Computed example of a mutant assay.
Amino acid sequence: MKAIAPITLELHGIRLEPLAPHHAEGLRAAATDGELWNLRVTSVPEPDKVEQYIFKAIEMRPSRFAFAVIDAASGTVLGTTSYHDVLPEVSRVEIGYTWYAKRCQRSHVNTTCKLLLLAHAFDTLGCALVGLRTDNFNHASQNAIERLGAKKDGVLRHHALRRDGTVRDTVMYSITRGEWPEIAAHLRYKLAQRPIERVPAEGTPC
């Protein structure tokens, strides 16, 4: 597996670029769309903690590489996603820390981001496996991961603290290198079956 280096990826009007301090205002606006920090099963930062969130993500390199998700046409920040738990010795990474402004959910944005990150992981970095994980009560996230074609590995019981102080079970998924060609074809087919619409502007209801 090659070392992960800062890189910009783009497809279908969505650009992933390394998360940096200058994304703070845009990321704050994305989190505010839906007041996502109030969701119990995610780790979206409160508006006054966005800068801290970005700096922590940068400090976690090389075990985590965070991206800002950008609408390429307008330059608007739509959310963020990351490679994390990077294990070069076994050619494994995970994709997570993913969240988007509410108006972008159930759009082509997540499928596009996953296709970009998975393709880069398998086809460029040479990963043997890409993992994904989510809260046991985040059923929307589990459904989205399963729609990608990832296989459920199991559940880590009593695994991590939530923001409200309760302890979550973590549902683990993965995709192997051998499974990737079929999943890549499936994701490209899904994107081809739906029009790639412009992301709604800030303040536009879902």
Results as ranks from 00 to 15, higher is better:
M1V: 15
I4R: 13
I7D: 01
L9I: 00
E10N: 07
G13S: 00
I14L: 12
L19R: 11
L19G: 14
P21G: 10
H22K: 14
E25H: 01
L27A: 14
A30Y: 00
T32N: 04
G34Q: 06
G34W: 12
W37F: 14
W37P: 13
R40D: 09
T42W: 15
V44K: 10
P45W: 07
E46R: 09
P47R: 03
K49W: 06
E51S: 11
Q52M: 12
Y53P: 15
I54H: 06
I54Q: 12
F55D: 14
I58C: 03
E59H: 11
M60Y: 10
R61E: 13
R61W: 08
P62N: 11
F65C: 13
F65K: 05
A66Q: 01
A66H: 05
A73N: 08
A73Q: 03
S74I: 09
G75E: 02
G75A: 02
G75T: 05
T76N: 07
T80A: 05
T81G: 03
D85T: 02
G96E: 15
Y97E: 01
W99S: 00
A101Q: 01
C104T: 00
Q105G: 05
R106F: 07
S107P: 13
T111A: 14
T112I: 12
C113H: 03
L116H: 13
L118N: 13
L118G: 01
L118Y: 04
H120Y: 04
H120G: 03
F122P: 01
D123E: 11
D123V: 10
D123K: 10
D123M: 11
A128P: 09
L129W: 00
G131H: 07
G131E: 04
L132F: 13
R133G: 00
D135G: 06
N138Q: 10
A140N: 06
S141Q: 14
Q142E: 06
I145F: 01
R147V: 12
L148N: 02
L148H: 03
R157M: 04
R157L: 05
R157W: 03
L161H: 09
R162D: 05
R162C: 06
R162Y: 10
D164M: 09
G165Y: 05
T166D: 10
R168L: 12
D169Q: 11
T170S: 09
S174H: 07
I175S: 00
I175K: 02
R177N: 14
G178N: 10
P181G: 04
E182G: 15
I183C: 05
A185W: 13
L187D: 13
R188S: 08
Y189N: 15
Y189F: 15
L191F: 07
A192I: 01
Q193D: 13
R194K: 15
R194Q: 11
P195E: 07
P195K: 07
I196N: 04
E197N: 05
R198C: 15
P200K: 00
G203E: 15
G203K: 12
T204H: 12
P205H: 01
P205C: 00
